[in-house]
């Protein structure tokens, strides 16, 4: 069971995430969009969406620091365990509060605004379930294990386990020692990553950073290939004779 959850599932979800994204990029570039519903409803979105997205950006940054920076490094620069946790918890909870407030507002808007609800697919609903579940489980785990009654230093269990994944020698016993609340959060997150390429979440991968560096007006030539030349686009191959 431990091997299944903490050694097989992580790699599986990674493979699905990468493979699925490549597949989606090759075969469904047209469907690769935010599918924004702002046209239907703007007032709630203008509060909820930035709250959620900016909150999430901070949450992701927090995860990068917490998972990738070993405890020995922060100790070496003189940040003690206690100081680190106070800072991480305070910042993390603030970011979590913004994210949760945002997603609650967004889901509420999605449910109550007629056109927005009608434009919501089953795929979206499943995605929202995992997204909200992961966020809530993560927040609950943090509250329970740092602020709450049980003190648990995840930088001695989850973080080394996460890093051990990258040198293909998963230390599953570390994860097995982690509290169940964290375990739930991690499993949900892995399932969310596996789901990622098949939902609208892919828009995160097209964050338009290149916009900052390109000239304003884009010129393109008419389709450089003459009609009928070269490989047909996926899905447009001629039928077998």
């Amino acid at each position: 069971m431990n091997t299944m959850l903490w050694a097989v599932l992580p790699y599986l979800s990674l493979v699905v995430l990468i493979g699925g994204t490549v597949w989606r990029h090759r075969y469904d570039r047209f469907g690769w969009t935010t599918r924004s519903s702002q046209l239907y409803e703007s007032r709630l979105l203008r509060v909820g969406s930035p709250l959620f997205h900016y909150g999430l950006l901070f949450v992701v940054a927090g995860h990068v620091v917490g998972l990738l920076v070993p405890q020995s490094w922060t100790n070496a620069v003189g940040v003690g365990e206690h100081a680190y946790h106070v800072a991480a918890t305070a910042l993390g909870l603030a970011a979590a509060a913004a994210t949760i407030a945002g997603i609650v507002l967004l889901i509420r808007r999605r449910r109550t605004t007629g056109p927005v609800f009608l434009a919501t697919t089953r795929n979206d609903k499943l995605m929202y379930l995992f997204l909200a579940g992961t966020i809530l489980a993560g927040t609950a785990a943090t509250l329970w294990n740092t602020v709450g009654p049980h003190e648990h230093n995840y930088r001695e269990t989850i973080s080394p386990w996460f890093r051990s994944l990258s040198y293909l020698r998963p230390r599953t016993e570390l994860m097995a020692r982690a509290p169940i609340t964290y375990q739930v959060h991690v499993v949900l997150a892995m399932l969310l990553f596996a789901l990622f390429p098949f939902t609208r979440l892919v828009h995160a991968f097209s964050a338009p950073v290149g916009y900052l560096f390109r000239p304003y007006v884009v010129y393109r030539s008419r389709d450089a290939r003459p009609p009928g030349a070269g490989e047909p686009r996926p899905g447009w191959e001629p039928v077998d004779r």
């Binding site: 690769w32 969009t33 935010t34 599918r35 924004s36 828009h203 007006v217 010129y219 030539s221 008419r222």
Partner: peptide
């Protein structure tokens, strides 16, 4: 993009990500 040959402004439907 603006087409080089005739200046027609078009949207690449495969490239648009719906940022509005």
């Amino acid at each position: 993009y603006k087409r080089v040959e005739d200046g027609i402004v078009l949207v690449d439907q495969d490239g648009c990500r719906g940022w509005r």
